[in-house]
């Protein structure tokens, strides 16, 4: 099978993730969309690794997974804290970036 198809899939997944980040309000869903984007990237990396015939892409993919895992831990902790204080997981309620 043509490896380029995997790249198309990665692009599709990334777009879905990005659209989710922009459109959805629930912090958990948003979070999952971010994960989706990360995984789309991983897929692209692995594909490139295959295409180029070296291991660089696969190594990067591992790094991404580690970072994503760490991010999940921190991110979930934040979401839980926000939910406790505001009784809502909607990101719009927590728009404190602008005074």
């Amino acid at each position: 099978m043509n490896p380029v198809n995997y790249l198309y899939l990665a692009a599709l997944l990334f777009t879905i993730g990005a659209a989710g980040v922009v459109i959805r309000r629930n912090a958990i869903v948003l979070f999952m969309c971010v994960e989706l984007m990360l995984n789309a990237c991983n897929l692209a990396f692995v594909t490139f690794s295959r295409l180029h015939g070296n291991l660089d892409g696969q190594i990067i993919a591992f790094f991404t997974m580690v970072v994503a895992a760490a991010e999940v831990v921190v991110g979930l902790a934040i979401i839980v804290t926000v939910f406790r204080s505001r009784h809502s997981a909607s990101v719009d309620d927590a728009s404190l970036m602008k005074l």
Partner: peptide, 8 residues
Amino acid sequence: NGYARTYA
């Protein structure tokens, strides 16, 4: 506007 989404 302070919404992270718009920045995204």
